[in-house]
């Protein structure tokens, strides 16, 4: 069974249709890249998979291990193993990072019927994970993303990914707002988390990110559909020719 199956997905925002019958299948362990010009619907796809309000699904379905994801609340999707790394992670003043991480991790475990972490066990786990990702302890002492640089925010997303151990990670424009060094650090974190059981869907506008996170399959989106899929060489081809050729194909 596929990990994620998006079938003929049609999505509206207010009165405008953004996705017009999108198909995508992701299996365990695969790294997919979704590329496409601005406005092609890449971020909409990631938001609909994660359950962000404001999108109306007018047709099609999204199955996660065969279960209807669209019937689940966003928190239930997270508990099932769907993780969206935000393009712009929000700052939450007054909520300590450690409190947030512990509350989220335990909420997911509770939803899955697993035992919650005690505070000492949780602290031990966070220390292990942050050490393996070279994340300074100081970052954990602040409010969630408060005063973080773009690079720190993305590293915090990677930290959460490592802590929550999702089976599907969707990285929405992870490269936006990052300089090349910060990008490399974040990408190293993502690569460290890739495993035969964990799939990644990397959404990006530029080929640059794919120098660091090498995809198995590249999809080109245009005007709300996947118009071409291929191997990693497709990304290089896009870099050379641009998206214009696909505008007509859509």
């Amino acid at each position: 069974m596929a990990l994620l199956e998006v079938k003929d997905l049609q999505v509206r925002v207010e009165e405008r249709e953004i996705l017009h019958g999108l198909n995508l299948t992701v299996n365990e362990g695969e790294i997919h890249a979704i590329m496409g010009p601005n406005g092609s619907g890449k971020s909409t796809l990631s938001h609909v998979i994660a359950g962000k309000p404001g999108y109306e699904v007018t047709g099609g379905q999204i199955l996660f291990r065969g279960e209807d994801l669209l019937e689940m609340s966003p928190d239930m999707r997270a508990a099932k193993g769907v993780f969206l790394a935000f393009q712009y992670p929000v700052e939450i003043p007054g909520v300590a990072t450690m409190t947030f991480l512990r509350t989220a991790l335990n909420a997911q475990r509770k939803a899955r019927g697993e035992s919650e972490y005690s505070t000492p066990d949780f602290l031990k786990k966070v220390r292990e994970v942050s050490k393996s990702l070279n994340i300074p302890q100081d970052m954990l002492k602040r409010g969630v993303n408060v005063g973080f640089s773009g690079g720190e925010k993305k590293r915090n997303e990677v930290l959460q990914m490592a802590l929550f151990e999702p089976s599907l990670c969707i990285l929405d424009e992870m490269d936006s707002g990052l300089d090349i060094d910060a990008l490399r650090v974040a990408a190293d974190g993502v690569n460290a988390l890739h495993s035969p059981k964990r799939a990644m869907v990397v959404i990006t506008h530029y080929q640059r990110l794919l120098n660091y996170i090498v995809p198995d399959i590249v999809h080109v989106m245009s005007k709300g559909r996947v118009v071409k899929s291929g191997g990693k060489e497709l990304a290089l081809e896009l870099e050379a020719t641009g998206y214009a050729q696909f505008e007509d194909a859509a």
Partner: peptide
């Protein structure tokens, strides 16, 4: 409550009321 903050917390596994509670405590 700020919807974008609520969604971030829910996307990390917090049920609606728990996400609200965390933001209210911060407030």
């Amino acid at each position: 409550l700020d919807d974008s903050l609520l969604f971030y917390l829910k996307a990390r596994g917090l049920p609606e009321k728990q996400a609200q509670a965390l933001l209210i405590q911060a407030f």
